[in-house]
Amino acid sequence: MKRFYIIVILILISLISGCLDSTPDNATEELRISTTSSTCDTGILDLLNKEFENANNAKILTVCQGTGKAIATGEMGAADVVFVHAPASELTAVEKGSFINRTYVMYNYFVIIGPGNDPAGIRATENAPEALGMIAGKEQPFISRGDDSGTHNKEKAIWMAANITPSGTWYQSVGKGMGDTIMTADIREAYTLSDRGTYLAMKDKTKLVILFETDKEYLFNPYHVMAVNPEKFPDVKYDMSMKYINFLTSTEVQAIIRDYGKDKFDEPLFTPALI
């Protein structure tokens, strides 16, 4: 019987010791980025991060969330730098002193996507509030992110501009990331608001098409990067964050952003802010 226990104990010890070497190697410095699902799902961040890692002997840990959560994560000090797209929320957080050095990196436009036969007839509309107004008027299914992300905030702003409080069974909030939301809208043959980049990255996985994108005012989608304030959280890697911010705004990286997606989607997913 004793042998039985010795074996059990040996297995346990080997399990524990196997676990201790899981920490990443110490020579490289880690940078924690809290970001939005659109930068992750389009794959652009991955490309940029790899460049940064190679140039700076750093290891980047990316947490992909909705913008609301991404900002909250930074505000609680659980990230070093955040890369998001909800200007109003960003400014509030900067005013609170949670972040510093907010820097404009790139933009694209939101698009309203939906089934190709466009039952609400939004193709013919003039601006975004009018387009959503048609959907509401005809009570056509609309899927909302519902996760306080940049996209969700934008959607709410448009509803407000249209003077509509969406409610009813046609309006469904899923509380998930952009990819999930597109997949849900696809299954329900519903409309939804998406950033252009994520939609293009998922284009071959959905039947939904871009029905409205002409409104440059309402559908503008700028991305900013900002560093967590080191006065609030002394442990954050502020120097590394600044390096990352400068990296994103450098001419070379801006050029990468300009070209990203051209080969794969025949058009760029983002427009660099500085070139």
């Binding site: 991060n49 980047i60 947490v63």
Partner: peptide
Amino acid sequence: GGNIAYTGSVGGIGEG
């Protein structure tokens, strides 16, 4: 945990 993978894997199967 944050569902973190090292750079290289985001956006599909990669080397990360």
